[in-house]
Design a binder for these strands. Structure first.
Lengths: 107, 107
DNA sequence: TGTCAGCATGTCGGATTTGACATGTTGGCG
DNA sequence: CGCCAACATGTCAAATCCGACATGCTGACA
């Protein structure tokens, strides 16, 4: 699926009007959903590994327990920024972050 | 320094500096800056590789040329969300995105 | 030299995201 | 059973971010 999708989008001169006419999820939208899901899962897993409660993580982030719950639920009201900040707050670096993003979903 | 933030840093187990703390970023803040820089560079590089102008990418994103310029400049008014959406709009998948995040800073 | 494409920077109204709070659910323990 | 910690869900004012626009800069080309 990766090569196919990339081949289509790789064309620098793709017709822009087409995107608006597409009703289904675009490849980019699908990828964004995938990314959000992975980051949400990463937050939940890493937090558990560190034995930190949602409330404690919230304190680290200067946020609230409810928002951390929304992060892990992949709630629409949560931006990528907040998800990433949560992972960094848990002590991850960009390398580890990349690992969670790119690794095959197995576990 | 913001007392609230101080509490947050303390809760995360970090030392709180004093007068010159605006120079001493927390590990999380440093990582976030690094990540933003990497993504900004990725957008500029991938866009160039695909021979797409800022205006064309803006069109794909439903945005404006000026905002794409800000993305590549790492402007504060640009969120991670927008940066990631720009890369996805250029045809990258989460795997490739992870590559840009985690790879050693080449050149 | 004039002009044009491409990119950069500043600002603003409106849209999105945030922290906080209220409230509900679940599971463990005495 | 009651109690409590941990987590989930909904709402809202305020903070942040977005797209759009105006405008400036630079290098290429005739």
């Amino acid at each position: 699926m990766d090569p196919n999708k990339q081949a289509r989008l790789a064309a620098a001169g793709w017709k822009v009007g087409d995107a608006a006419d597409f009703l289904a999820l675009s490849p980019a939208e699908t990828e964004l959903v995938e990314i959000r899901h992975r980051l949400a899962e990463a937050v939940r897993t890493v937090r558990a590994e560190h034995q930190v409660t949602q409330a404690q993580l919230a304190r680290i982030l200067g946020s609230s327990q409810s928002r951390v719950a929304k992060i892990e639920a992949g709630d629409r009201s949560v931006s990528l920024d907040l998800m990433v900040r949560a992972l960094l707050g848990l002590g991850l670096g960009h390398q580890e972050l990349a690992g969670w993003l790119g690794a095959k979903s197995a576990a």
